[in-house]
Simulated assay, not measured.
Amino acid sequence: MPLSYLAAVSVTLAVVDAREQRLPNTLVMPGLVLLGWAIVGAEVQEPGRALSVLAACACAAAVFGAGWLAGAVGMGDVKLAVLLAGTAALLGAVVLPLAGVALALLMAPALVSACSDTRIPLGPPLLAAFWWATVLAWPP
């Protein structure tokens, strides 16, 4: 369910973030609600599975929360990272998509030097890394 939602809004999120340097709650929050429902469904289907999904969300939130506290990452990026990590965990592909998110964060200094503003839109590289890693990790 969250994967379908992300497929529907990824391009819009990337374009809005690139233009306005913000990820609108009206696009990110419905995905988080769907993720919550999917986590509940995963727990009902396979008891104990929701714990690994929540752990992935917590890791993403911790990494980006530290960046947010340091003033380097926006709160929209934190929410998007939680949505991407949770969706990847539901797919059973945690390591590769999280590595893609880490790659996007490593690209941040280059993006800062390329932009005249110190605020950079992390949404497009986060989404690109997520989709790239998800496609690579997709079961054959």
Rank of each mutant, 00 (worst) to 15 (best):
L51S: 08
G31F: 15
V78K: 00
A89P: 14
S4A: 06
M107S: 02
P124R: 06
L106R: 13
V11A: 01
T26E: 12
A137G: 09
L127M: 02
A93Q: 11
L105M: 10
V9C: 12
R19S: 07
L80V: 03
L90Q: 12
A81D: 14
L136W: 15
Q21K: 14
G92I: 07
V73L: 15
S4Y: 14
V63A: 02
L122Y: 05
A8N: 04
Y5C: 00
L126K: 10
A108T: 06
S10G: 00
S4Q: 04
G74Q: 03
V73A: 06
L69T: 07
V73Q: 10
A81S: 15
L127C: 00
V73H: 09
A58S: 15
S113F: 12
V11N: 01
V53A: 02
G65Q: 12
G76A: 03
T26P: 11
P24T: 14
L35I: 06
V53N: 13
F130T: 01
G67W: 00
L83I: 14
F64K: 01
A14N: 04
R49A: 07
C59L: 12
V95T: 13
I120Q: 04
A70L: 08
G92M: 12
A7W: 12
P2T: 08
G76N: 02
E43V: 00
A61K: 11
Q21E: 04
A99Q: 11
L83S: 04
A114N: 10
A104S: 14
P30G: 03
G48W: 08
V82E: 03
A129C: 15
L27A: 11
V44I: 14
F130R: 13
L83P: 08
L111T: 08
A7I: 07
E43W: 03
T118A: 06
A99D: 07
L122D: 01
T134G: 13
A88F: 11
L96K: 00
G92D: 15
L34Q: 05
A102S: 14
A50G: 08
G41E: 09
E46N: 14
P140K: 09
L126A: 15
G92T: 15
S52N: 05
G41C: 09
S113Y: 14
V101E: 05
M29A: 11
G41H: 09
L35W: 04
L13N: 05
E20K: 12
A55L: 13
G76M: 00
G71K: 03
W68N: 05
W132D: 05
L13V: 11
W68G: 01
T87Y: 11
L13D: 01
P121C: 10
G100Q: 02
M29S: 00
A99K: 04
V9F: 10
V73K: 09
F130K: 08
E20S: 00
A18M: 02
L80W: 06
G36Q: 09
M29W: 02
A66R: 08
A99I: 15
P124V: 02
D77Y: 00
R49V: 01
P24I: 10
A72F: 13
D17V: 03
A72R: 08
R22P: 14
A58H: 15
A8W: 05
V16P: 13
A72P: 08
A102E: 13
A70G: 11
C57R: 09
A133V: 07
V78P: 02
G92P: 12
A129H: 14
S10A: 05
V9P: 01
